[in-house]
């Protein structure tokens, strides 16, 4: 009788311990899953962030390409203007300069 009563109690206690262990293990597993989720969520946000920066970067690229194009055009135009002005001026003064050069060459200081 006494032996039988003790056995029943022990069985109950063992069951309680097992249930306790199950509860703790479940919590631990949830924790692991949660940490894994943290990594997954972080990676997702990272991908979004990267996509955002990539978009901004591509915009910067296309903007700068447009800028470069405009700069090149302006530079070419300025260069052509300078050269045109140079040629115009050269033509304007050429005869005088040549005459001056020849006059210097043929003027001997003694």
């Amino acid at each position: 009788m006494a032996s039988n009563r003790g056995q029943g109690g022990i069985q109950q206690l063992l069951a309680a311990e097992q249930e306790a262990q199950r509860i703790v293990n479940a919590a631990k597993n949830e924790k692991l899953a949660r940490l894994k989720q943290a990594k997954e969520e972080a990676e997702k946000e990272i991908a979004e962030y990267r996509a955002q920066l990539e978009a901004e970067f591509q915009k910067k690229v296309s903007d700068s390409t447009g800028d470069s194009g405009a700069n090149v055009k302006r530079l070419e135009q300025e260069t052509e203007e300078k050269i045109h002005h140079l040629k115009t001026e050269a033509a304007r003064i050429s005869d005088d300069v040549v005459a001056m050069l020849l006059k210097y060459v043929t003027s001997v200081k003694n």
């Binding site: 249930e19 306790a20 703790v24 631990k28 924790k31 949660r34 940490l35 943290a38 990272i46």
Partner: peptide, 29 residues
Amino acid sequence: FIRQEAEEKANEISVAAEEEFNIEKLQLL
């Protein structure tokens, strides 16, 4: 008592999990 201990421990683990979740995520980010 055994059950209460287990639930308290599980609760601690859950709280720690949430904290570590946030820390881990922020650190990675």
